[in-house]
């Protein structure tokens, strides 16, 4: 968070660096936020995660996995973010996040299972935004 701010170059180039700034990211963020609203509503209505609820997070996880794979591929075509270590750390976290929420939610067949999926769906957009932020600081 800090390092991104500190190393901000004078001419910031918001490029498609590491390809995390494309339409795929926007789609992931929108889908995640829509799902979050759905899960919070389900929690409020005291519903345990249904098969559809769980499958929706599986779908979100697939979308995120594609995003991460594309970003990893982007690391090998020349342009890397200044803070590659942090970027890779965030990529690993992002990739593992939906499965982690899914496992916890499956262990919790109560309304709180839906809250877990909801929190997962709210945190994922934050992770994607952080990835974009880190990727937008190119090597000086």
């Amino acid at each position: 968070m800090i390092s991104a701010r500190r190393k901000l170059p004078a001419r910031q180039h918001i490029s498609n660096l590491c390809r995390v700034n494309g339409p795929l990211s926007v789609a992931t963020i929108v889908v995640a936020l829509v799902l979050a609203v759905w899960y919070f509503a389900r929690t409020a209505l005291d519903r345990a995660p249904s098969r559809t609820d769980l499958l929706a997070t599986v779908g979100l996880g697939v979308l995120v996995t594609v995003l991460v794979v594309v970003a990893v591929a982007g690391l090998f075509d020349g342009s890397r973010p200044a803070d590659t270590t942090t970027f890779v750390g965030y990529l690993i976290t992002t990739a593992g996040f939906a499965p982690a929420a899914l496992i916890l939610a499956r262990m919790e067949p109560t309304r709180w299972g839906n809250l877990i999926l909801g929190i997962g769906a709210v945190v994922l957009p934050v992770l994607v935004l952080r990835l974009q932020q880190i990727a937008s600081v190119p090597v000086a």
């Binding site: 916890l104 919790e108 709180w112 299972g113 877990i116 929190i119 997962g120």
Partner: peptide, 10 residues
């Protein structure tokens, strides 16, 4: 378990 599992995630 329950809310505890939500806390576990956070």
């Amino acid at each position: 378990s329950g809310i505890g599992r939500v806390l576990l995630l956070v």
